[in-house]
């Protein structure tokens, strides 16, 4: 009798994406376990965004497979599911935090409605309850309750990101994709947001795949790291190992160019 192994949440094998003749990414292999944060790091053009789009099923890969542990179904190849099934996944078990909050929020609808939308989509029909849950989540992302009826278009960038995060987390997803969530924010705002993300990840046991060009973000949030360049995976491993003892010259270059505080 053996101990049953913990099932990976996501399993990626030999993933490849081409745009006509142009390489998006290839040779991507990894497993992600519940509660883990995987950072995908690289400069622009490295293929990290392409990879994220494939992993989050927004783009179909040219080759290889992406398997996700679908609730009550086990590991399923994402592209063997129907589009309908993928959409359900995106609304319930996944979250996606966009770099630009305008892509992840309804800017002209109140913060409360933004956060409550997934609940309403899942059948919530009591206004007071929905509003209360919105308030609870806005509090968790450290937004003043008084702003619940305000429109995100009147919020600062950092606050918009917080609303986006709350909007995703309200349905208790198991996996959250993040695309440069702190990009475009100034340094102190970034720091606060990262702290928030770190505590949410721990408190909620979230798995996260985060794409960034900023090594400091990965140092703070990611357990494991994948370095990309020109569509190839240059190096991957535990964050501390990769950052403290980089093997590949390119990684060494990246690490050494990070400004020391």
């Amino acid at each position: 009798m053996s101990l049953s192994a913990i099932q990976p949440l996501m399993q990626v094998e030999a993933l490849e994406k081409w745009y006509g003749q142009q390489l998006g990414c290839r040779n991507v292999n990894f497993e992600l376990y519940p509660g883990e944060v995987l950072g995908i790091v690289g400069e622009s053009g490295s293929g990290k965004s392409t990879l994220l789009n494939c992993l989050s099923a927004q783009m179909e890969p040219s080759a290889g497979s992406i398997r996700f542990d679908v609730r009550e179904q086990g590991l399923r190849d994402l592209f063997s599911l129907s589009e309908a099934q993928r959409r359900v996944l995106m609304r319930s078990e996944w979250g996606f935090v966009h770099q630009n909050p305008r892509n992840g929020l309804r800017m002209r609808v109140s913060a409360g409605a933004n956060v409550g939308e997934r609940l309403m989509g899942l059948g919530a029909r009591n206004y007071a309850d929905i509003r209360q849950q919105s308030l609870t989540w806005l509090e968790k992302v450290e937004i003043d309750a008084a702003r619940v009826d305000d429109l995100p278009i009147h919020f600062s960038g950092g606050m918009q990101q917080r609303v986006q995060i709350a909007r995703n987390l309200v349905s208790q997803p198991r996996l959250v994709f993040m695309d440069e969530p702190t990009g475009g924010l100034d340094v102190s705002v970034q720091a606060r947001l990262l702290d928030l993300l770190r505590s949410l990840v721990t408190d909620l046991g979230l798995s996260v795949i985060i794409v960034t060009h900023d090594l400091a973000v990965t140092r703070l949030l990611a357990h494991r790291l994948m370095v990309m360049r020109g569509g190839e995976v240059i190096e991957q491993g535990l964050t501390d190992q990769v950052l403290d003892d980089p093997q590949h010259p390119y990684t060494q270059l990246l690490v050494s160019s990070v400004l020391q505080p």
């Binding site: 959409r87 609808v109 409550g116 939308e117 309403m120 989509g121 206004y127 009826d149």
Partner: peptide
């Protein structure tokens, strides 16, 4: 697609906003 998949959350968002 929204009809086929009953992705109607957004309709209630409109009603929520009205009440707000």
């Amino acid at each position: 697609k929204m009809h086929a998949l009953r992705e109607y959350g957004v309709m209630h968002v409109k009603l929520y906003e009205d009440i707000t």
